[in-house]
Design a protein around this nucleic acid. Structure first.
Lengths: 212, 212
DNA sequence: TAGATTGTTAATCGATTAACAATC
DNA sequence: TAGATTGTTAATCGATTAACAATC
């Protein structure tokens, strides 16, 4: 879809533009479907340089009209296509701790196309119970489950010590991408996409700036 | 402390080095206190270029010995000083939802110097209750509380619509930094440090790569 | 001394932004 | 046409990395 390789900062900003356009659509009540939005309008809303915005978009196509701007609704749809938000994704969560629980109930999921198909834990006291309407299964079943249900994304919310092991089990099942909340670096075959979300880093960066 | 301004990517990597050194200390059982660690050893563990590591460290001082490397324990302590991990920080959490609950119970806090002093919500059913051993207070009391207890860091886990308003209340109380989990951009005076952690962006970036 | 590794410079690489021709 | 705004080039800026003298 994109010409050449796209810096990951671009993808991050695309998410921002997407949210910004949703906001615009919300504000306008979806009435006037042919409204145009300019790069400088998006710039004002996001704080990103307008030239940057235009450049980011041209990685993926020419969506604008010179002299007018970008057709807002069309651009929103294009961004959804680019970001893979125009389809459903199946997700499992490994780790039925507090953070796992919070993620199951996280609104951002259901509103996008993320379907949580199951939760996995090794604690016999948790297995068989439910969080919301999602069952908790034995982590031993995880690879079979992933294969059978063709799960796309695995979310790792297990303790640091078991992160590598559980991640490998996900890969055995044929998972395509992993979002890792465990404070541990994970080594997996390069074809598996891993994103690390490290909450303690967020706090440590903050205290760095407070200490200055 | 640092000479000139330090790119935020450097601070992020410093967190990584810090964790790496903790791991080394853990592995060695704290015995041989004068062990040296070289930039290439840290590089092998973190995947960061050794020249990068040396450069990052020289923003803050000369911690190494030519021909030997860096004294591991000393460097660990220096990093803790730089990152502000050698002292206590007081924290409040605004929003007693699922994510708020998970954060209160997050182990990464207590093990570092982060003290959660209170949780704030506007739901009368929640006010007065506890999560773990931390009380939930009325969000109306928040600014008074921040001032009285000299709170350093506010964690925002409220819905997007109320994020700006609650953040402003934190600033009124004299908060120094905010960690924002609400999917909303917040405008505050420049002296307040804000970090945004946007979980839906993490997922959207992942689905971008899966779509390719 | 010989080997190792730092701190630092200089070269490279990549990302951001200003400027402007194209064009609606 | 005149005004506006894109898509794109070229200039700038900043970050990464290779190389090496200093030195343990």
């Amino acid at each position: 879809m994109a010409k050449g390789s796209v810096p990951s900062a671009v993808i991050n900003r695309l998410c921002l533009y997407h949210r910004c356009l949703e906001e615009i659509r919300g504000a306008e009540g979806g009435k006037d479907k042919l409204n145009y939005v300019s790069s400088s309008k998006i710039a004002a809303m996001t704080g990103i340089n307008p030239a940057q915005i235009r450049k980011d978009l041209t990685y993926f196509g020419e969506f604008g009209k010179r002299g007018k701007g970008y057709p807002a609704v069309d651009l929103l749809r294009e961004l959804e296509k680019i970001l893979g938000l125009d389809r459903k994704w199946s997700v499992i969560i490994a780790g039925a701790g507090n953070l796992g629980k919070a993620l199951v109930r996280y609104k951002g999921f259901s509103s996008r196309g993320f379907l949580i198909e199951g939760i996995f834990d090794q604690d016999p006291l948790k297995i068989g119970k439910k969080i919301g309407h999602i069952f908790i299964y034995d982590v031993k079943e995880m690879d079979k489950f992933i294969r059978a249900k063709d799960i796309d994304i695995g979310v790792l919310v297990v303790p640091a010590q078991s992160a590598q092991e559980v991640a490998e089990k996900m890969v055995e099942g044929g998972i395509k991408a992993i979002l890792n909340f465990a404070p541990a670096r994970i080594d997996l075959p390069a074809k598996i996409r891993i994103h690390n979300v490290d909450l303690s880093f967020e706090f440590e960066e903050l205290t760095y700036y407070l200490s200055q």
